[in-house]
Amino acid sequence: MGEVAKLIDVTKCTACRGCQVACKQWHDLPTETTPDKTKFAGSYQSHPDLGPNTYTIIEFIENTNENGTQWHFKKTGCMHCTDAACILVCEKKALSKLENGIVYRDMAKCVGCGYCAQNCPFLVPKVNPKTEKATKCTLCENRVEAGLKPACVSTCITGALDFGPREKMLEIAKNRVATLQQQGMTKAQVYGEKELGGTHVIYVLGDAPEVYGLPADPQVPLSATLWQKYGKPLGAAAFCASLGTTLFAFFLNRKKDLAPKLHHHEGGKSHGV
């Protein structure tokens, strides 16, 4: 099939959240928020962030200003980057790139060190403290292998989600953006074509990436590159001892600066902050 991609057209999403449920169903994931354990967030958003048992969420981004109210619905999950920082930092080779572009996770190899979680420009992977494994969207690589679409895509009502060859998805995305721009959404854009070497989750956005909590120019953190170059061969302990934890911590903290300056973001902590 060559490289594949999931297309997320946020301008068509009605936030029914069928994708969230389909994801949990396919992966047989337990619930994370329960009425008695969860504090009310003051929002329709179900989870403040992705979690070890929640690979995708719809973020409800609300903005009321002099132009009226905008309520954006953004599906969030692993971007399956070409330049995947998580793969660079994964010492146990639990994360790897499949030929079709999917960032594959091998749960058997994962030790839950959390470097992937720390270095992801989108802060996607989450470590489950109980199982000591990092989890994230798999792009349903087993379904894809069997010729099916990812669970979330197959349940989407409005066609906000699509899946197929990456080139085709890009073409659809670009045509859609052209239409949106004609309709007056002048800031409509494709996100993911070039970012991080090209991601395998591509967005059609109706506005600037920052509006949706996406970094305008995501980068593989320098810490990840350094880690791959020097840290990995030496091993974690040696690396920390030799280069010093300060330097590493500095780069780890830098990712905060990479995060976009955000609008009022309904519902808990925003992704990327």
Partner: peptide
């Protein structure tokens, strides 16, 4: 109503994945 619940919620408030989406009365 909200998308995530169905009528008086008998079905949906007893289904964990749906209860999770809209857990509280507001």
């Amino acid at each position: 109503r909200v998308c995530e619940h169905w009528q008086t919620g008998v079905l949906t408030r007893n289904t964990p994945w749906l209860a999770e989406l809209m857990p509280h009365m507001f």
